[in-house]
Amino acid sequence: MPRLLRHALFILVPLIAALAIAPAVYGNHLLLFNLIVFMTLAQGINIVYGFTGYLPFGYVGFFGAGAYGFSLAVMHLHASPFAALALGALAALLLGLGLTPLFRLSGAYFAIASLAAALAVLQIVSNPALEHITNGPYGVSLSGVFDPSLAYAVALAILAGTVLLVIWLRNARFGLALQAIREDAISAGMAGINVVRGRVIAWLLAALIAGLTGGVYAWYISVFYPETVFSGEVTVFAIVFALFGGTATILGPILGVAILYGIYNAIGISTPQYFQLVYGLLIMGLVLFLPNGLVSLLRRRGVDVP
């Protein structure tokens, strides 16, 4: 059996099946929905950071663009949720295209510039001068299309598509080419890999994923403030979850979200007064003692982690 098919059969199918059944078993649907959202976003981070080495510290900008693209389509064009999702994704893609010049920057510069871009979009969206378009700081209320169960199913479909994409990247020539660029861009270029094109495609794929996720998030929660969908916490969560599991793998981000998000919620319900402290310490411990993620523990024991 080819590896691609094996991965799809043994990772994707059980994951989606489990998340599809979960609402019937466990009542806290929002928690499950957030789990899907973060799994998708962590995979998006995985595509940019794991496969190209660029850390987009403003990743939430695409998520927010998707959420607002969706909301504006519903509010002004009275679009159906699916058409609105497409417009949300388009908004994120356009933002991604507009930001491609940032790739000229290296390391920390890129991370900071992408953060600044996300914050700039937030400042524009939440400005009262644009109240008649975005409803400014007063937030969005999408009561007309409210349908959490359908939104949950769509979010699951987006997750499935994203994981499938990562499975393909992990097994196809293009994914290998990207990793080669990450390790040494100049040598990769000399080996005939189109460096610029590779990075831009990965970047736009990640933007598309975040845009779709933001759109479906807006649909699901339906009442939100600009700060909610542009919260820096979304980026940091997605990055930390991806790193915790291990980037440039299929399984890493999935494990990372399942375990860490589980722990967060357990603390959040039992001893929330120490939530921030434990959360901070966990992140520090992760960087200092497990910088290559959980999968590196398995790899050291000779297990091949997909």
Binding site: G27, N28, T228, G268, I269, P272, F275
Partner: peptide
């Protein structure tokens, strides 16, 4: 803890659990 994410989960906890 003033956190909207935590709050959302907890509202759900109150209703469903």
């Amino acid at each position: 803890q003033s956190n909207t994410g935590t709050a959302a989960t907890l509202y759900n906890q109150l209703i469903t659990q």
